[in-house]
């Protein structure tokens, strides 16, 4: 256990190092600068801007400065919004994305497990759900979001179309975000329940005359939930980070929308900081899910070796 935590920590640090290096050099390759506008013509002004933001230094100096700021998690100020630091931007915009992502996570887990459980009970229900699930999986999130917004906000006028930080604004984005993970979890669970139901130890438990409910919870569900839990790690990260399309369509002032905005504006410190912030979330949720799996189940050993 401790050995694994140490291994994960080493991987964590190496990943952060590699990701920051890649991001740094990718951004060196990107054409265009913050001073690349029609308004600024004079060489003097450009030199001043470069000096202010430290862009006049040699690339190696800037690289080491970047590494230093990465590991102290202090990326300085945004180029576009003067005086606003990257940490302030995260503190301001992330809570909305986090509420959106975590609510979708919880609702898709509950609904997905429920559907997976129901569809494992009888063959005909399983087939019906299978068709529904494969249809829903083929629908990209942005199509779902556009149609949801049109029908429920414009046509039937059930939800407000403008953002007012009210709970009612969250309903449609959460539905749009959680359809794909719900179907995925349901499919995963019904498959693994079907596999475990026919296994020897469930048969043995039935032969010992244990009651149905106990067999369901402590024999079947407890083991069948393992693939779902190991999927929860990447899912949490993708819901926290990948919500920018939904944020754009529903006009939600979240962090994902800000990320795209700062890439387009070459706002270098913000991109750097947000990329690493997302990477930290992804790595830590994966790690937590791994720990959960290994605590829950003997199969954790198999997953650990992957």
């Amino acid at each position: 256990m401790i050995k694994r935590i140490i291994y994960n920590l080493v991987i964590f640090i190496i990943s952060i190092f590699i990701i920051s290096t890649i991001t740094f050099f990718l951004f060196e390759l990107v054409p265009g600068n913050i001073y690349d506008t029609d308004l600024i013509k004079s060489a003097n002004i450009i030199a001043n801007i470069k000096e202010k933001y430290g862009l006049d230094e040699h690339i190696s100096t800037r690289y080491f400065l970047m590494l230093k700021s990465t590991f102290s998690f202090d990326f300085g100020n945004s180029f576009i919004y003067d005086g606003l630091s990257v940490n302030e931007i995260i503190a301001k915009y992330f809570p909305i994305s986090a509420i959106l992502g975590l609510t979708s996570l919880i609702s898709s887990f509950i609904v997905g497990v429920f559907i997976g459980y129901i569809s494992s009970n009888s063959k005909s229900i399983k087939n019906i759900f299978f068709i529904i699930i494969i249809l829903l999986i083929s629908l990209p999130t942005f199509i779902i979001a556009v149609f949801l917004q049109y029908y429920f906000c414009v046509k039937f006028n059930l939800f407000p179309i403008l953002w007012s930080a009210n709970w009612i604004n969250f309903i449609l984005p959460i539905i749009a975000l959680s359809i794909y993970p719900t179907t995925f979890i349901a499919r995963l669970l019904s498959e693994s329940i079907a596999g475990i139901k026919s296994s020897d130890y469930v048969f043995a438990a039935k032969a010992r005359g244990l009651n149905e409910i106990r067999i369901w919870f402590s024999y079947i569900l407890k083991n069948a939930i393992t693939p779902v839990i190991s999927y929860m790690g990447p899912l949490t990260a993708s819901l926290l980070t990948g919500s920018f399309i939904v944020e754009t369509i529903f006009n939600i002032p979240g962090l994902g929308r800000y990320f795209i905005y700062s890439i387009n504006n070459r706002d270098y410190p913000v991109v750097m900081g947000l990329t690493l912030f997302y990477a930290v979330i992804l790595i830590s949720t994966n790690f937590i899910a791994n720990v959960f799996v290994s605590v829950n189940n003997y199969k954790g050993k198999r997953i650990e070796n992957r």
Binding site: I11, L29, A279
Partner: peptide, 24 residues
């Protein structure tokens, strides 16, 4: 471990970064 490092980069963000660079 190399695969783990690749998997720990956020997929869509990496895609966006690579796309911005290559299109430039």
């Amino acid at each position: 471990s190399i695969m783990n490092i690749f998997e720990s980069t956020p997929e869509f963000l990496l895609a966006i970064l690579i796309m911005v660079v290559i299109s430039g």
